Amino acid sequence: MALQRTPCLFLLLVLTLLGLGLVQPSYGQDRMYQRFLRQHVDPQVTGGDNSYCNLMMQRRKMTSYQCKRFNTFIHEDIGSIRGICSTASIQCKNGKMNCHEGVLRVTDCRETGSSRPPNCRYRASASTRRVVIACEGNPEVPVHFDR
């Protein structure tokens, strides 16, 4: 009799855990969130120079097949970045209304135009400036660096 109740309790536990998991981003949003983290978040430094951009763009796999022309690295902890998602919504460049803005420490990396993958070369510009990021999910998480 106890053995028959075990699968029911296990099923109830699994359903409870799944229910709790509903507040997490969906698989697609989680994939986009992970991509956002890989391409844009580096809280370990406060700003970068040209060699920083050259190294990070390679490390983060944005120079494998072609040189990504422009990328921004955010030098804040993920909690601060996610906090921007709770500000008022504004319009994104694509017209959607899921963007949010805030001021963050960043390094902009711009491809010089005279390099070939995978040895792409970048010019860095470090600053504290207004940024716009797109957020999705419940709770909302950053999924795209808009500007």
Rank of each mutant, 00 (worst) to 15 (best):
D77P: 02
T63I: 06
S86I: 10
P43R: 07
E111D: 06
S114I: 11
G102C: 03
Q44Y: 08
G102W: 07
T107Y: 00
T46R: 06
G48Q: 06
R105I: 00
S125E: 08
G47Q: 03
I81A: 01
R121V: 15
V45C: 04
K68R: 15
Q58T: 12
N71A: 02
S127V: 13
T107P: 02
T63Q: 06
G83Y: 00
G48L: 10
Y33R: 15
V45T: 13
D108K: 15
I84D: 06
V45R: 06
M57P: 11
F70Y: 15
E111P: 00
S86G: 12
R59W: 14
N50C: 09
E76S: 13
S127T: 09
N94Q: 12
A124P: 04
R35A: 15
C85V: 02
M56N: 09
P118K: 01
T112H: 13
G113M: 03
G79F: 09
K61D: 13
D49P: 03
G113V: 00
P43T: 02
C53S: 00
I84A: 13
Q66K: 13
T87I: 04
P117V: 03
N54H: 14
T87P: 05
Y122L: 05
N54E: 03
A88D: 13
N50S: 08
R60M: 04
M56T: 02
S80E: 13
C53Q: 00
D42N: 10
N94S: 06
C120H: 02
N50F: 02
V45N: 02
N50P: 05
R116N: 07
E76I: 13
K61I: 14
R59V: 11
C53L: 03
R82T: 08
R116V: 10
Y52R: 02
D42V: 05
S51G: 07
R35M: 15
A124H: 14
R69Y: 12
K61F: 15
F73N: 01
R105L: 06
R129D: 08
Y52Q: 00
S51I: 14
R38Y: 15
N54D: 15
S86H: 11
H40I: 05
N119M: 08
T72R: 15
P43N: 04
Y52L: 01
R116T: 12
N54M: 03
S80R: 12
N98V: 12
L37A: 09
Y122R: 14
F36A: 00
C109V: 03
P43W: 03
D108W: 10
N119H: 14
I81G: 01
Y65K: 13
C109W: 05
S89L: 10
T46W: 11
C120L: 07
R38K: 14
S64I: 09
N50I: 08
L55K: 15
I74R: 05
S114C: 11
N50R: 14
Q34M: 15
C92W: 02
Y65V: 12
V41E: 00
E111Y: 02
